[in-house]
Design a binder for these strands. Structure first.
Length: 256
DNA sequence: ATGACTCCCAGTGGGAGA
């Protein structure tokens, strides 16, 4: 049964050993990575290949950077959103085993009303329109990554404190729902899940120990795939390790 | 409490993240 995962690793240089360990314990068919923070020339293709992973990357210095790792070759690789001039490396898509996989690192947005928030809105407009086109060509599509949006109050540890704050604004949530309106389905919510399930915990304030987090990393599947989803879960295990990413990996199982 | 931590590039601090 095909399985896919997404993980914001917050520097692939720092997290490569943890990534390889996680992949050994969780042998997914493909994984989308965000915040690799590596130019493509420095991407660790060889180390990953030695562990049995093919990799395609779209990176830049210091910030952002995305990649797709797969057991079998990736074809029709797309870097960035077509037609959307973007200096920031946030999107990589490829076809793996007949499945269109889109890995995305949504802009943070900083604060409502800021220039970065306006960019986040423009970026999501462009992503929405492009995903609509992609779905027309690829009915079997998975959009996964760090969305930097908590879709509902139940995705926030303190929805009162976070009301209207970045990741929780009505504008960001409306953009998320617009993706669902394309026929995409939030795989995580197809199943009963533990209360207070998060995918990100702040490094500060003992947030992980207190389980104060947000669910902002998501896997959306196309309408054709939704009936075939068998499981979707967030793995908190890596967040407990030494020098963790602040995000947890999310994975999905889809029946053939 | 306009913080707290971590990463990067830098250079003995500052920006960005969320």
């Amino acid at each position: 049964m095909p399985t896919y995962a997404t993980w914001n690793v917050n520097s692939l240089t720092v997290r490569l050993p943890q990534l390889l360990a996680w992949l050994e314990a969780n042998p997914v068919d493909a994984i989308a990575l965000q915040e690799t923070k590596l130019v493509d020339e420095k991407f660790p293709h060889a180390e990953l290949a030695a562990a049995g992973w093919q990799s395609v990357a779209h990176g830049q210095r210091t910030y952002n950077g995305v990649a797709l790792l797969s057991r079998t070759p990736a074809s029709d690789v797309q870097r960035g959103i077509p037609g959307f001039g973007d200096e920031q490396a946030r999107v990589i898509a490829a076809t793996v085993g007949g499945m269109r996989l889109v890995g995305a690192y949504f802009p943070n947005g900083q604060a409502p009303g800021s220039d970065k928030f306006a960019y986040k809105m423009r970026w999501q407009d462009a992503l929405h329109d492009w995903i609509g086109d992609e779905l027309a060509h690829h009915p079997r599509l998975v959009l996964m990554g760090d969305f930097n949006v908590a879709p509902e109050d139940r995705d926030v540890y303190d929805p009162v404190a976070w009301a209207g704050q970045i990741h929780c604004t009505p504008e960001e949530r409306a953009q998320f729902r617009r993706l669902l309106d394309l026929g995409l389905v939030d795989a995580f919510r197809l199943f009963d899940q533990p209360d207070r399930s998060w995918s990100w915990w702040d490094y500060r304030n003992l947030a992980f120990r207190r389980n104060q987090g947000l669910r902002i990393d998501h896997i959306l599947v196309s309408a054709a795939l939704a009936p075939r989803v068998r499981a979707c879960r967030i793995d908190k295990t890596p967040r407990k390790s030494e020098r963790p990413s602040d995000h947890a990996p999310v994975q999905v199982e889809i029946a053939d």
